[in-house]
Computed example of a mutant assay.
Amino acid sequence: MRKTSLYVGDLDPEVTEMELVEAFSRMGPIASARLCRDSLSGKSLCYAYLNFCSPSDASKALACLNHANLKGKPMRIMWSQRDPHPRKTGIANLFVKNLDPSVDGSRLQGIFCNFGNIISCKVAEENGQSKGFGFVQFDLEEVSHGCSQGSQ
């Protein structure tokens, strides 16, 4: 199966579907875009799903726009996963602490990308400032074990 669907998270609450389409359509034709909203209030849940017409355009969007700013906030982009099990169990998720305030999600990903395929990478923030820790989720659990053992 060829992947064409991306999850886009950590969005500014004011981002609209039209702004997402505008930002991502530079990578190629988009089949659909859905900004997820609270069913009662209609407020943005700050994440969306984008479906591209071609896998290569989706790959290009992931490579070029992951951690790029939209409305002043870096987006976290990853392949859409229908199976919630890996996300909910934290499998292959590495917790990284004592980060320098200058380390953002993009830099954290650059530090750990040599260890394996990264699914998601995020530095925790509050009011736009790093909280000094983050998470790196790999596609294989063995990779995250190797990273944590190597840093002891």
Rank of each mutant, 00 (worst) to 15 (best):
M18L: 12
E22R: 14
A63L: 12
L6W: 01
S120R: 03
V21Y: 09
F138N: 01
S80C: 14
H85N: 02
P84C: 08
E17V: 09
G132N: 04
G134T: 01
F52G: 05
L108G: 03
D10E: 14
C64N: 13
N127G: 07
K3S: 12
G132S: 01
L140E: 11
M27W: 07
K131A: 10
G134S: 00
K73T: 07
W79N: 00
S151C: 05
Q149V: 01
E17A: 11
Q152G: 13
S59I: 10
N66D: 12
K97C: 12
E141G: 05
G128R: 09
W79Q: 00
Y49P: 02
A61M: 08
A58C: 08
P74V: 06
V8P: 03
Y7T: 04
I111T: 07
N93D: 00
D83M: 09
R87N: 08
D38G: 06
A68Y: 10
F135G: 03
A92Q: 00
N114L: 11
D83P: 05
K73N: 09
K73L: 07
V136I: 01
F133C: 04
Y49M: 06
L50V: 13
S44K: 09
M1W: 05
R82D: 11
L140Y: 08
E141L: 04
M27G: 06
S144R: 00
R107H: 10
N98W: 13
H67R: 05
E17R: 10
H85A: 00
P74I: 04
P55V: 06
C64R: 14
P13W: 04
S5W: 11
S59N: 12
L99H: 07
S151D: 08
D139C: 00
S54K: 11
S5G: 10
V21N: 07
F133N: 00
M18N: 13
L40C: 09
Q129L: 14
K60I: 02
L45E: 02
P84N: 05
S41H: 10
A63Y: 07
A31Q: 15
I30T: 11
F133G: 02
G42Y: 10
A124F: 15
Q149I: 02
D83S: 10
D10H: 13
F138Q: 01
C121Y: 00
Q152K: 13
Q129G: 07
P55Y: 06
F52M: 11
H85Y: 02
R87M: 12
C64S: 15
D139S: 04
D83W: 09
L70I: 12
C121S: 06
A68H: 14
M18H: 12
V96F: 06
C147D: 03
H145E: 12
L20W: 02
G72N: 12
D10N: 14
S25L: 04
G110T: 07
K97Q: 13
R107A: 11
K97A: 12
S41Y: 09
E126H: 14
G128N: 12
I111W: 05
Q137N: 07
N114T: 11
R34K: 15
P13R: 03
C36I: 15
G128C: 08
G116V: 00
H85V: 04
G90Y: 00
K71H: 11
S130V: 04
S41F: 09
V143A: 02
T89Y: 01
R76V: 15
S44P: 05
A61T: 09
S41N: 13
S5H: 14
